[in-house]
Design a binder for these strands. Structure first.
Lengths: 134, 134
DNA sequence: CGGATATAGTGAAGCCACTGCACTATGTAG
DNA sequence: CTACATAGTGCAGTGGCTTCACTATATCCG
């Protein structure tokens, strides 16, 4: 049972990595994009706490995304120490496409699954997640 | 639903990483230990194909494990190019303890879960895994 | 106002996982 | 005995991640 779960974890992780790689993205960089999508322009500090990584690390991630044109550093309107990391139009399009692909993927996995089984699965996953938080 | 799954993936992954870190291990190094546990002394080449990584990478991983005393490089009895990576007694004890911890963890997650829900969960996970292979 | 202190970001250095390429030593087939 | 294949590793480079030190700016308070 745990074996099944771990196998799934590895499988999903690898699959996601392959998908992202097709857009020259990595999990970490995609995480930044995702956070920006959810929160709008934010400070690197905010990104650091949101992603639970070092501010120094955010610098590097943003460097990469900026080089790829997905993101720009804008001056913060009131705090001249800070920079606002902002999605470019291209970056926004990319995130939206990733969201579409993800929806498509979810459809592939769950769409023609009997509602009963789907509910059972959801309940089981939720319960595991709950227990793991303890 | 997919969100739930992804959350679980991240959670399980992080948790595992933390566990391994307590023994100064990483996922990659633990994978080597695990493979050795399952197959006994093997060639680095075999490890490379078993773990689906470059032979070059195995060299580094084995270096690390050897430095920590979990593993030794023994000469291959017939092929003088090859080295047999072998678990030391300490390494074996470590892997066994990891297995115990994993069993304990599994117990924490599943032990007092009603059999019905457990079955449903197992079936759901298996089906997802099945679909993902396509 | 002015000095102490906190904060945002980055350079430098370093660890780990991973890769490709080049090279040595050895095995193997013809 | 000569080709060619194979096992392992040095070298170089990428990416994610960390800590420490440092600059620039903000803020708080006497």
């Amino acid at each position: 049972m745990l074996g099944l779960l771990l196998e799934l974890v590895v499988f999903v992780g690898d699959d996601m990595q392959r998908r992202l790689a097709r857009d020259d993205l990595t999990a970490a960089r995609a995480g930044v994009l995702w956070a920006l999508r959810a929160r709008g322009p934010v400070t690197q500090r905010e990104l650091a706490t949101a992603l639970a990584v070092t501010p120094r690390n955010v610098t590097g991630l943003v460097d990469g995304l900026a080089a790829a044109g997905h993101v720009t550093r804008e001056p913060h309107p009131t705090d001249r120490r800070a920079t606002l990391v902002t999605l470019t139009p291209a970056g926004t399009r990319l995130v939206e496409r990733l969201e579409d692909e993800q929806r498509e993927f979810a459809g592939l996995l769950f769409d023609d699954m009997p509602a009963e089984r789907l509910d059972a699965l959801g309940g089981g996953l939720a319960e595991i997640l709950e227990r793991m938080r303890g």
